[in-house]
C-alpha cells in the first residue's frame, strides 16, 4: 500500500478483469435463508477466481434499461474451465435488483456477467497459507469470507482460521450446516456466531452487538500477527476495525470490505 510498493510492474496479469460482458446461464438456485439465495451460474470460459473476489451482473429490461450490480463470489476458487460459479444474494427491501434475483430470475435464463474483480480482499491458499486468519463478518458480509473458508477446505489447507459471524437472528444465518460441519472437523477452523437482534430461548448470550472482549477471546491476539478480514455493513466494519486496531493489530494487516446503504 505504500508509494514504494506502487512502483514497478503492474500485477495486472493476476488481477486483470476480463474485458467485456459475457452471457451466463442460471443453472441452480438454493435458498440460504428466508431472504437470501445462492445462484449457481454457468459461465463458459470463466477464468477462475480467488476467494474474496466478486463479479458484476448486468440486467436488461425490455426497454433496454440496464442495471449493474456487484456480488461477492461464494464458491471457492474455481479452476479455469469449470465454468460454474456461485453468488449468494441477500434480498434488500425495496431493492431494484436483489428481490428480482432472489425471487423471480427464472432457471435456465440468461444474464450478463463480468469478472472476477478485486484483488485486495482476497485469501489465496497458495500465497497466504500459514499465517493465522481472523475473519469477522456481519450479515451478508459472510459471503466473501465463506469463499475463503471454502478455499481453505478445498485446498486441504490447515492454516488456522477463526471466524466471528454477527447476524441479526438465527433465521438470518447463512451456510449454517456447512459451517458446523467444517468446525467439527477439528482441522484448525473455528466459528463463533452471535445474534444482534433476537436469540433462541435457550441461548446463553442475549442479543447484542459484538463486544471487545468477545472479539479478543474468539479472535487471535495481535502478537500472532494474523491477517484480518472484516466484511459487512459500514457501521459494523467501522466498529470492528476500530476494536481490532485498538487491540494492537497493525492496520496494514486489516483488510475491509463495506456494503454501503446500497439500493440493492
Amino acid at each position: 500500500m505504500t508509494e514504494a510498493e506502487a512502483r514497478g510492474a503492474r500485477l495486472g496479469d493476476r488481477y486483470a478483469v476480463p474485458s467485456g460482458w459475457q452471457v451466463a446461464t442460471l443453472v441452480g438456485r438454493r435458498a440460504e435463508s428466508a431472504s437470501a439465495a445462492t445462484l449457481v451460474l454457468d459461465v463458459q470460459g470463466w477464468p477462475g477466481h480467488l476467494a474474496g473476489q466478486h463479479l458484476d451482473l448486468r440486467l436488461t429490461a425490455p426497454d433496454g434499461y440496464r442495471a449493474e450490480r456487484s456480488y461477492s463470489l461464494a464458491s471457492g476458487p474455481a479452476e479455469p474451465g469449470t465454468g460454474r460459479v456461485e453468488v449468494t444474494v441477500q434480498r434488500v427491501r425495496d431493492g431494484e435488483v436483489s428481490p428480482y434475483l432472489v425471487d423471480q430470475f427464472p432457471l435456465g435464463s440468461a444474464i450478463e456477467v463480468r469478472g472476477p474483480i478485486g484483488g485486495w480482499f482476497v485469501w489465496d491458499p497458495v500465497r497466504d497459507a500459514g499465517t493465522p486468519v481472523l475473519l469477522v463478518a456481519g450479515g451478508s458480509g459472510l459471503v466473501p469470507v465463506m469463499a475463503m473458508v471454502r478455499a481453505r477446505r478445498e485446498a486441504g489447507d490447515r492454516t488456522p482460521f477463526r471466524l466471528i459471524y454477527s447476524v441479526r437472528t438465527p433465521e438470518d444465518r447463512l451456510y449454517t450446516d456447512e459451517l458446523e460441519r467444517l468446525a467439527a472437523r477439528g482441522d484448525g477452523f473455528d466459528a463463533s456466531t452471535i445474534f444482534t437482534r433476537a436469540v433462541s430461548l435457550t441461548a446463553l448470550r442475549g442479543p447484542r452487538r459484538l463486544t471487545d472482549s468477545e472479539l479478543a477471546s474468539w479472535g487471535w491476539p495481535a502478537e500472532l500477527e494474523p491477517r484480518v478480514y472484516i466484511c459487512g455493513p459500514t457501521g459494523f466494519v467501522e466498529a470492528v476495525s476500530r476494536m481490532v486496531v485498538a487491540q494492537g493489530h497493525d492496520p496494514a494487516r486489516v483488510r475491509t470490505e463495506r456494503f454501503g446503504p446500497a439500493a440493492g
Binding site: T60, A61, P62, E96, Y100, F105, P106, S109, A110
Partner: peptide, 11 residues
C-alpha cells in the same frame, strides 16, 4: 433485449 436477457426484469 428483454427477450433473451433477464426475463421479467423491469428495474
Amino acid at each position: 433485449p428483454g427477450a433473451t436477457l433477464t426475463p421479467g426484469f423491469r428495474g
